[in-house]
Amino acid sequence: MTAPSSPLGTVSVGRKVKDRVAQVLVYGAFGLALIPLVSVLWTVVSNGLARLDPTFFGYSMNGVGGRDVGGGAYHAIIGTLQQVAIASVIAVPIAVLTAIYLVEYGGDGRLARAIGFFVDVMTGIPSIVAGLFVLALWLLTFGFAFSGFAGALALTILMIPTVVRATEEMLKLVPNDLREASYALGVPRWRTICFVILPTAFTGILTGIMLAVARIMGETAPLLLTIFFTKAINTNPFDGPQGSLPTFIWDQASDPNQNSIDRAWTGALVLIGIIMLLNLAARLVARRFKPAGH
């Protein structure tokens, strides 16, 4: 700390030390965050590889006990894909149209402000509450049974606000010049939105949707209350309990037998794999096609 005295003067030792301590703490914070990330990924991969075999993808758990070897998550993967697909089919149109209303039509009106506020509220709804709501409405009030569709309804509620916000951000990025150019050609507003504005914002919206899908795919709690649980294959999401990857992991992890625990880890590996792929694909889409007009 005894730097040769410069004609410009030196920074006092105390200030330098403080600066250095802050730097160490800040670097340390980042390092600290890496520990759980690396640990989670490492344990999932190393424990999950044991059962990452064709049987896992080809068979269900029907008739397989906790102590038995073999068995797989075929029923769960089918269920998750169906539930997430149904949720997306319901949520995306509602969410994109809501965002269009907020950006293109609502302006600063009362309805738009109310919707904006309640979309924020919806973002904060705990996933288990979404599950309870579908339970109260769909199962207890309307009298339907547990089904993949009921689970998809709960996931829809979790998906809508994320997609609304992502779409809204992207629509706001579309330069006003383009709207004016289209109006000046005598193009009606709805055609302007559908054929000029949405294509311009498309990749951004797609990224948002993919991230939202990745998010709901890992949800467990609402599914426990709405699709319940089964070890058998059920390819009809509208009839009876269905499997899903998160509930598969939940069930296998609650069994103390090592064969079950192994299956749980492999389930986690597959789930994380799908989610990470979706995330990665979303980033690639976002990078490949920068928001147009900039």
Binding site: I94, L111, I115, V119, P188, W190
Partner: peptide, 30 residues
């Protein structure tokens, strides 16, 4: 495109209102 405009604007508005209805329904049914 007036008819198209009305339908599309109605769909957008309707979706927004659906979001409000969902929140209200969550409170009511719970």
């Amino acid at each position: 495109g007036r008819a198209g405009d009305r339908i599309f604007a109605g769909a957008a508005r309707g979706s927004g209102i659906t979001v409000l209805a969902i929140i209200a329904a969550i409170g009511v049914f719970l």
